[in-house]
Write a protein that binds this DNA or RNA. Structure first.
Lengths: 336, 336
DNA sequence: GCCCCCTTGCAAATCGATTTGTACAACCTT
DNA sequence: AAGGTTGTACAAATCGATTTGCAAGGGGGC
């Protein structure tokens, strides 16, 4: 009895119950009526033989594999596991299983995986493209398998998009600082054209302008999305002629670097200078002081992607595309 | 031309090239000889029609899906993405695609997913069990699909195991503290019977005894694997009659909590008290002072699991089981 | 009592590839 | 020149389920 799971097929069940495979299939799927008596017999046989339908065979015949693919840049980047977790929870509840693959942001890898997903007849793809444009994705995948793209939409009516709306959270952050009495606020963004920094800087400028606050170019700095990047940029801002009393950052790593810079300058956080990050990665709650930051709701993005995909699968390829923007929110801790 | 990918099957390719489907299959798989001339014709047709074999159909016939499953407790726990990344990189290189699923440590979820993997004919399973014993896993899965288990082996000769060997790293940590002049070292473990804390505490005791150091029960504390758990336990140790000059912790979150406790007691790190964590999660490099910790080589574990699984697939179920223990290593930063 | 319809179950086709058995030809061997 | 070997391609069976078309039996309406 090494094998808890014998290799019974639907034919074995049919033989055991004294009916045809057809009847077994109908009894189990409910797609056609089966008398209560035979259904009972079949259920007994199923239990006795420990029958489990071969899902590969089912997938081939029914053209539905109940499989989806999640394609991200790097699963070990703390943002993606949150997304994956949301996707996973929604989809497994409906009997889907997710393939999870990394592209490392390489265009050729994105193309290769997409083609492989099509060859494997996945029922849907959720993807955060780094190198491919939505049009090319659509071209590779074709109309047969639905795609939900994480990121800014390109106005297309045939692809679903989900993104988090940085504006709401950043605006809340600026308002919060304003309420605390801050009138001079700086911002550290990422390198030009790379990542979400540009969009977040724009959101920041809008929010500051909306409150009628003064801005100063010396209070804006850029650097890589790392702790060291934040340290450098933060030091530059603090060295300006009249430094701001608060700094917002394009991500949490930069914010942690900015805290280093503040400490190095002998400033106390948040009494001398307030700092707010972006992303609310797990780390944010573990540094000292605990980082006030903007939660971009990664898990919510995953959930929304999965739900959007399920709707698309149900509605077919001709339904109008959904473009979802999830609100972000300020998480107030100790650094501001 | 919305569809970059037409729906050509092997029959279409055969018709286009003027040969039989059999010949196409053999030309592409190389399992039987095909003359150079026809092979060329076929390759042209494949390219023209953009043919990609349906991998579901192939999987059904060949009984190999080139699919594996990775079953973990929680993909958003920073340990697992590292493992997943290692698994992913090795397996995708060989044409496998990984399903990634979470169990949240619930026994019933572990059982359900294992059964589903079998039903889907995955070629292998890599699993970090939380609630199920190896024997039960073996029982559910049967002999048909190979399993690699992450964790302590149970002496079985039929299941492959991979684990990281805490002893090497913890011993290195204790030696390092000893070299720095510490003669009284405490340890904060997790709750009894849960997680890796017990094993790590044993390794710690062995290392301390090997150096002939004195131990004191007041220097050992337990608590949940969280920052707050570390704060509590750390405070208790520091309140003992003669507190130690260094504390090792069963994981990094506990270590961060212990640093909080030290600060609360007015102690400077590492001059007044040295602290060493375990796991080297991404956070460890971001707290202040940067946490000295023991890297358990999560990515290496993933790589080893994948390689072990590939070997098992190649060797068949009767080959002797491999039990691998990967060395851990001390990462020296600022907290010790 | 006759006819029709509805329920129930089976046989056979199907999904799209791989794999096996076989036929035909050409080329060697003796 | 007869017999044997090798190379090449095809037809048919196969993987394990779902799905469709059809037949037999039972019940109800008129």
């Amino acid at each position: 009895m090494i094998d808890g799971h014998s290799i019974a097929g639907i034919i074995d069940v049919a033989a055991d119950a004294g009916v045809s495979p057809t009847t077994v299939s109908h009894a189990l799927s409910g797609k056609r009526a089966v008398s209560a008596k035979t259904r009972l017999k079949i259920q007994e046989s199923v239990a006795r033989l420990n029958y489990q339908p071969n899902l590969v065979a089912r997938g081939l015949r029914s053209q539905r594999t109940h499989t989806i693919a999640l394609l991200v840049a790097d699963i070990s980047n703390p943002y993606y596991p949150e997304v994956a977790s949301g996707v996973h929870d929604v989809l497994t509840r409906d009997g889907y299983l997710p393939f999870v693959c990394n592209t490392n942001g390489v265009a050729e890898a994105e193309r290769t995986f997409l083609a492989e997903f099509v060859a494997r007849s996945v029922d849907g793809i959720i993807m955060h493209p780094m190198a491919l444009a939505p049009a090319e994705i659509r071209f590779i995948v074709g109309r047969r398998v639905p795609v939900v793209i994480i990121g800014e939409d390109d106005g297309s009516h045939s692809v679903d998009f989900v993104r988090s709306d940085d504006r709401t959270g950043i605006s809340a952050g600026v308002s919060y600082l304003h309420d605390q009495g801050h009138r001079s606020i700086g911002f550290i963004s990422g390198p030009v054209g790379i990542g979400p920094g540009d969009a977040r800087l724009i959101s920041f400028r809008l929010a500051v302008a909306a409150l009628g606050l003064r801005t100063d170019d010396e209070w804006i700095a850029r650097g890589p999305y790392t702790r060291d990047g934040g340290l450098d940029a933060g030091a530059r801002i603090l060295a300006s002629s009249t430094p701001p009393t608060a700094i917002m950052c394009a991500n949490d790593l930069i914010a942690i670097g900015a805290m280093d810079a503040a400490r190095a300058a002998g400033l106390a956080i948040p009494s001398d200078i307030a700092i707010i990050g972006c992303d609310n990665i797990g780390i944010a709650d573990l540094v000292s002081p605990r980082l006030t930051t903007i939660d971009n709701n990664a898990r919510g993005v995953g959930i929304a992607c999965a739900e959007t995909l399920l709707l698309r699968i149900a509605d077919g390829p001709d339904a109008v595309a959904r473009h979802t923007a999830l609100p972000t929110r300020l998480v107030i801790r100790q650094s501001a």
